[in-house]
Nucleic acid binder design. Structure first.
Lengths: 404, 404
DNA sequence: GAGATAATGCGACTTATCCGCAATAATGGC
DNA sequence: GCCATTATTGCGGATAAGTCGCATTATCTC
């Protein structure tokens, strides 16, 4: 007699849910604080009573999430308040960035701070997914060792790569690497490292990074755009990556209608080239355009017009509030932004904020860190019904109230 | 000493929050049930104990949200269970659809069922926003009276209109109606009727409607598309309307890059015309194409190619899982869908589900009902920290535990 | 060293959930 | 028609977790 549908909807709550949520709220407040905090500060931040916070802190301290800070020198009169410190290395995450020639692995703490980094060259053009994952996983382990963190503390990871990657971390099509098509990239890293792993398009992660700690802070609807030698976009909607059901969102270069393939040979387009010599020539073209050299200005205008066309299309579809020029374009932003804005005005495109990346080439890596942290957050901080990671529990003395 | 940021994050919970949430869970289970339900059924649907549900039902009944159903004839042995009925008319919502010639107002109950409808002709081409709102509000009041519902029970409303409308219900640009530019449409209805009102683009509401009760059920990432005489799209991402910060998402016709203005004169394009004679000719063209008439087939192919081009662009940006052909196109779906699919294959566009509207011309209206219900849901069913409507409380005996 | 000040530690009270027993109201066989 | 069977109801009591407030404690200032 199934008269009532309850398709995965929220189940009823009991008191223990309250404690679960409140524990998360307190932990989050601690993690977000700039410095060690007092009970009073937690009271005003969470709205909970001091007594409750006291009890929760007791449990958190017993499980190693917080520690009493050294009895710092106090300011005013009265009994000095205890200060509590969030143990941001209680767990760490891994970020991996793959390109055709190398892999970089970074270990970061729960606040996103980088603890260690390791790089590895990938066999020239071998393009073997399994080998790549093996080498990159080794790099993660080396970085972990260098950071001096026990492997059990590694809670989650994210790998950034080019091309179409769907929500389950399966590669759709990698430019120039047919062997990767259909490869379960995220699952391969999960297998190799024994922790939950996500795989995401690098432009999407760059967009996430800029929103977290870059040029689009406070702009939850933004796009990260690269054009020229490479072409792609990453979209953030409501602060979350928008990849679409098959991961195709952002791979503008694949559209034969938009036709961004036929790349003319203006030097300025090579700002996004992976080859240093090309990039140097492109930078020279930017300087020349800035100086008013007619040929360089004409080239820059042609490039800017193509950028404006793409932004116009984005405005009537994805409708970002902000567009971040990334992947090398930031070098030419001084010349390009005014030109692009002019073309947009000509087309009657509604105003869009146009800014240059602030994270530069680090953007995909920073985004991968952030992405992994979001995964951890989802089970670490409250959220009734959240699930702890599947593979390996980070530690035996996991706090009970966070377990289920 | 603001060391802790708590920018609108979730505050701590106390026990009353549990009751608030559980009350909402029970109410939602009641509302979602197909028929009157027993306590046992609520237990299995919510996971709460019978005792708790009993207490909550007592409060809900006292406040008029549920009633004891007639002691229906029972089936098996044992004491027959009481059956509870959700009072779906405890509150109602209003949906208004504006086009250039008329306004339609509908009153619907909390399950979305239509209770009454009223229409009004708008003065020919007068295009006065204030007058339009006044006439449409009168239609709402007439429908309310016809439904026999006390005005205090009207909880929220939504108005559907063409053009760019931002998240606060301000009109950006209405095709052929410059007087409307910048008009605060939602606020005008709020003023006139004294209840929270939303204003949304009609294509966006159509997309919402198809997902709720039409062709894209179970497809939270979908697009509703219309091309030809009229051109526009509505996007649903994660089950919610995606309009972009300025409401520009979906107004593809505005893009000079996509250039969907220059409408050739193939008869089949007039499927989306507001003029009945044009539509009849278009339907004849569809029949002719289906019969193999060379000229008609050629026209249909040209139209299908343009549709395919738009879908290709959407795939690499919005990336819908499903595209619903609406606003008259459903008539030609039999002819158009295969042709569009063929063009998409040619372009290498990843597979997209392509379906015809199931709600037809009612889609924007149904979407407006749904949109208003979503507003009500947000404060009616649980959600700690939810706000009741601003303007007029629906009734004096509002349940206490739902108030704050 | 005394007073002022602010944080801590803890007991008492409240809210809301869950558990389980006894009472209740139908059905159906004899 | 009566009684056993059965599922539901009604309600008292235990438990979890949050709030309030008083007495205590630790530090600074004069």
């Amino acid at each position: 007699m199934r008269l009532i549908r309850n398709n995965g909807r929220m189940p009823g709550l009991d008191q223990t849910a309250v404690r679960r949520v409140n524990t998360g709220v307190v932990l989050r407040a601690l993690a977000d604080a700039d410095a060690d905090v007092t009970l009073q500060e937690l009271v005003s931040a969470t709205g909970l009573s001091r007594r409750t916070i006291e009890l929760i802190l007791g449990e958190l301290a017993a499980d190693g999430w917080v520690a009493l800070a050294v009895p710092t020198v106090s300011g005013g009169a009265g009994r000095p308040a205890k200060r509590f410190r969030f143990e941001s290395r209680r767990l760490v995450v891994a970020a991996v960035v793959l390109d055709s020639h190398s892999a970089v692995a970074v270990i970061a703490d729960l606040r996103g701070g980088e603890l260690a980094r390791a790089a590895v060259a990938l066999p020239d053009e071998s393009r073997d997914p399994a080998l790549t994952v093996a080498l990159a996983s080794d790099a993660v382990r080396r970085a972990l060792a260098e950071a001096g963190v026990a492997p059990e503390r590694l809670a989650a990871g994210t790998v950034a790569a080019g091309g179409v990657i769907d929500a389950r971390g399966v590669v759709g099509r990698l430019v120039n690497a047919p062997l990767w098509s259909g490869f379960a990239l995220a699952a391969a890293f999960e297998q190799a490292l024994g922790i939950p792993f996500a795989a995401e398009n690098d432009a999407n992660l760059a967009a996430l990074a800029e929103h977290w700690a870059g040029a689009s802070i406070g702009r939850p609807d933004s796009a990260w755009l690269i054009l020229g030698h490479r072409t792609g976009a990453g979209f953030l909607l409501g602060g979350e990556i928008h990849r679409g059901p098959r991961g195709t969102a952002g791979e503008l270069v694949e559209s034969r209608v938009l036709n961004l393939h036929g790349v003319p040979d203006e030097a300025i387009r090579s700002l996004t080239s992976p080859i240093e010599a090309d990039r140097r020539r492109a930078r020279e073209a930017v300087v020349a355009a800035a100086a008013g050299d007619p040929r360089a200005v004409s080239d820059a205008r042609a490039f800017a017009e193509q950028i404006a066309d793409v932004i116009d299309v984005l405005t009537w579809t994805i409708a970002p509030e902000t567009v971040v020029l990334g992947g090398g374009l930031e070098v030419g932003a001084g010349v390009l932004v005014p030109l692009v804005s002019e073309f947009l005005r000509d087309r009657g495109t509604p105003e869009v904020e146009l800014v240059a990346t602030r994270l530069g080439g680090e953007a995909p890596l920073v985004g991968a860190i952030r992405r992994a942290l979001v995964d951890v957050d989802s089970w670490l901080y409250s959220a009734p019904g959240a699930q702890p990671p599947r593979s390996s529990e980070p530690s035996r003395d996991e706090p009970r109230e966070l377990r289920r």
